[in-house]
Structure formats: structure tokens, C-alpha cells
Amino acid sequence: MTTLPQSDIAIRVLRAGPLALLQDRGRFGVRHLGVTQGGPADLYSWAWANRLAGNPWGSASLEITFGGLQLVAERDLDIAIAGADLGATLEGHPVPLWQRVRWSEGQKLTFGTPVSGLRAYLSVRGGFAAPPAMGSVACVAREQLGGFDGHGRKLADDDRLSTFKPGITAAPGITQAPPHARPDFREPPQLDLLPGAQIAEFTGRSLFDAFNTWWRVDDRADRMGVRLAGPKLQCRIRSLISEGINLGGVQVPPDGQPIVLLNDRQTIGGYPRLGALSPLSVSRLAQCLPGQEVRLVARSGESVLREYRAFLASFAS
């Protein structure tokens, strides 16, 4: 008989900030029901935060967008923050990112505003504890699924958050990410795009423009999708009969401005697509602030697959 790991209140929310969401890997096997995937918008940084905190792959972390969150520890905790630099401080002192840190009982952890990147991942050793909804705790407010209450409620002031109690032995594994593993989110990224079926339907200069433009990340960007602003792309097809959309799909509505679809996208849709970004490029795009510039680079499946498999293998527990 398996026993559930014990969980206990570990953290109190002093100020919830604009958007902090509980995220495990996401919901799978339910997309045919119209249930979105959820999960960390930046899978890469989420995976690192968990690894550095000594957690297995798939543990639930807090995805903190923009900052503004203030928490206090109600017992001694080992944590790691990876992803965006949101000016986090512990009792007023800057918290080193991409490494394991001790957060002692009573200390305040405060997130400020974005210094670089957009989303930070806070992992606590043991992992956050919440009741799974349809197999996942990933918080999707629109679908009333996941989060600490199981019904998609965002973090609120005075919430008390539980974590699973880790074993008494010291957490194994590395405690610091090597410098080369820490992305510089201020650099304009090159995003890998695997061309899709409608790519030949883009006319005139559109294909040249798609891959030779510095696209600007629009302020209409959230966990459903990120709009890119630039030259108007023309496609012979204005709309398709609605069909399933995969993560990273780059759809082009009639206004000619591409939208990259992220974790909380609608499960089906009917706009023609240039193709789909690789999972790691989706992660990278999720760290771009409005106004930042990105480039789309057409890539073949084989090379992108090699990189993605190497990433997953390095995190396999």
C-alpha cells in the first residue's frame, strides 16, 4: 500500500501580486475534452528550479509573472528560484537565482519588478501540495481547474500554502546551475520553428518576411498566446475548419500578425499556421517582455529533437 506523502502549511502570502500560479507539468490525455494543457510557460526554468530544490521532475512550483509577490516562511525551507530575475529579496537582501537557498522561518521573500525575463519559478524542496484536478494541479483560472484550491483560483493575500514534507536526508543532486545553463533573457532570441502544412500558402514576400524580420512581442501576450508585431503576412487561406492545435503553433489570423500559442491555448482553432515552435523555444519566448524583439528560424525536426531529448534526459530522475 502506498501512503501519500505528508503535507503541511509552509508559507503565508502577504501580497499576492498580479499573477502567481501553481504549475506542475500540466494536464495530459484530456485535450480531446476541450481541456487545455496548462503547465509552466517556461518549461526549461521550471525544470531547473525543481532540480535545484532537490525535487523530482513534475513537482509543482509557483510561476510568478511580473513580480509583486511577498511571502513569509512559516518553517525553515530549502528553495530555488530560476527563470526571470524579478528582483527577489530575502529580508531585503538579493536572492541568488539558479541555486538552492535556505529560507528560514519568519523571513520575508519579496519579488519586485522584472530586471530580465518575465516569469520566475519558485520551487520548495518537497514540492507544493494541492488537490489535483483531472490529474494535475496546474492552475487554469478560465477552466476553474488546479491551483491550491483545485478550482483555478489565483493566489490571494493571506493564502497559506502547503508543501510536501521532504525526507530527512539531504536533498541530492546539484545545487547550482552552471553559468552556461542560465539564459540571458535580455538577448533577443532566435526561436526554432518547424514549418507546418500551410507554410506554402503564404504569398509574396510573406515567407521572406516571416524569417527575416525582428518581430516585436506585443503587449497582447498571456499564457494563451503571444502576439508578434511586424510586417503583415498574407496567406491564401483565411481560415480552416477548426482542428487541434499543438503547443507552440504559430497561427496567422487575417490581420497578418502571428500569434504563438502557449500552454493555456484553446484546444482547437481555425487559423492557418506557419508551423510550430520547438518546446524549448516556447520556453524562451515565455520570458520575453512586451517590446522585446525575436527572430523566427526555420529548423528541421531532427536537430531540434536531439536538443529536446538531451534536455529531457538531463532532467530524468
Binding site: F28, H32, S242, E243, N246, T267, G301, R309
Partner: peptide, 23 residues
């Protein structure tokens, strides 16, 4: 298999890229 999303005229097959290559 990760997800199978049927719709009007299509079936989207999402698979585990560790177990299977696209080919």
C-alpha cells in the same frame, strides 16, 4: 500517446518525443 484531439475533419496525434521520433 500523449493526446489525441479529434475535430470535424482531422485527428491531431500528440506523442511522446522521447519514445518516438516524428518519423
Amino acid at each position: 500517446v500523449v493526446d489525441l484531439v479529434p475535430s470535424y475533419t482531422t485527428l491531431l496525434v500528440v506523442f511522446d518525443p522521447v519514445q518516438l521520433s516524428p518519423l
